[in-house]
Amino acid sequence: MIYSLYILNKAGTLIYQNDYGPTEKLSHNAYIRLGSTFHSLHAIASNLSPAGSSSGIELIETETFKLQCFQTHTGTKFYIIADPNHPNLDETLQSIYELYTDYVLKNPFYEIEMSIRCDLFDYKLQRLLGD
């Protein structure tokens, strides 16, 4: 079960958020705040590394969910919140990234680093994550 997907641009601003499972709805501002918080946690975690240079947070495990994050070379971050037992979140994130390159970046009306409003992207994500 995948609960939600967040996409942050390289500055840490939330550019996409959607829920796919039963989860409490928050206000739009709360989602933006969560996105920025994650961006800073990600940066601090890589700073705190006891073993040389490190990436930021890749996986958070908690009692009720698991958060898996994927950062592209250009700094865009994708993270999904899923059930703690959900397998292969890595692959799911790769597929989401492919959908993003195909239906967002190749969309001539999409302005880079701005919020994503592409119907085709929504539709494909729903098909990938919504069952």
Binding site: L34, A45, S46, S54, E58, I60, T64
Partner: peptide, 30 residues
Amino acid sequence: SLKAFISTSSPKPIDPKTGFHCYKTSSYKL
């Protein structure tokens, strides 16, 4: 902040004391 982040992000109610287990980066795990 991570604990606050987790309790807001959680899809179900979560105990703030025992909710967070660990996180992982490319070179270490906490």
